[in-house]
Amino acid sequence: MISIFKTSVKRKSEIKLLKPHLDELLCKSRWNFDLEDSDNILRIESENCSERKVVELLEGLNFKCVELE
């Protein structure tokens, strides 16, 4: 399953800050940010991704995050 989120993450340094948190939450998943996209997309490939937990994690770290359908 692939989940896609619009985020407010804009810099590689912010991704570096998020990496340990996302790795812990999404331990057996692949994820990446596309900062060249105007929506600063977070794409997650996972069999058990909790979209709600991803949104809560980013928002808890003061980033905007909305799942795209």
Rank of each mutant, 00 (worst) to 15 (best):
K16E: 15
L42Y: 03
S50C: 01
K10M: 14
D39T: 12
L25D: 07
D34N: 05
I4W: 00
V54K: 03
C49V: 07
E24H: 14
K10T: 13
K10P: 10
W31I: 03
R30D: 15
F33Y: 08
N48W: 13
G60H: 01
G60W: 00
M1P: 15
C49T: 04
K28Y: 14
D34W: 01
C49G: 04
S8I: 07
E36P: 12
E51Y: 01
E59M: 07
T7R: 04
D37H: 14
E69S: 14
L57E: 06
K12E: 13
V54E: 02
S3P: 08
L35E: 07
R11Q: 13
V55A: 03
R52W: 11
S13Q: 14
E56H: 11
R11I: 14
K6T: 06
K6Q: 12
V54A: 05
I4R: 00
E67P: 05
L26T: 02
V66K: 10
E51I: 03
K19L: 10
E51T: 08
L35H: 09
L58R: 00
W31R: 07
E59F: 04
M1K: 14
L25T: 07
R43T: 13
K12C: 14
E59L: 06
I15C: 05
F5I: 02
G60M: 02
V9D: 03
C65N: 00
D23F: 05
I41K: 10
E56P: 09
C27D: 15
S50P: 01
L61F: 03
L57R: 02
S29K: 02
R43L: 10
L57D: 01
I44R: 10
D37R: 09
D34C: 01
V55Y: 03
K19D: 08
K6C: 06
E36C: 12
S29Q: 02
N48V: 11
M1S: 14
L18V: 05
S38E: 12
F5Y: 00
E51R: 06
T7V: 09
E14Q: 08
I4P: 00
L35S: 06
L22N: 01
E51C: 08
S3K: 12
D23E: 09
F5S: 01
L57Y: 05
K19T: 09
L25P: 06
D34T: 00
S50E: 07
L68H: 08
L17P: 11
I15R: 04
L25C: 05
D34F: 01
W31C: 04
S46M: 10
F33W: 08
R43I: 12
C49E: 08
K16L: 14
G60N: 03
L18M: 02
E67Y: 00
S38A: 11
S46W: 07
S50M: 01
E14L: 06
V54T: 07
T7W: 06
N62I: 07
D39V: 12
R30G: 15
L17H: 14
S46C: 09
K10L: 15
R30S: 14
T7H: 06
L61G: 04
E45K: 05
D39C: 12
R30N: 15
N32L: 15
L35Q: 08
L22F: 00
E47M: 09
L26I: 01
I44C: 09
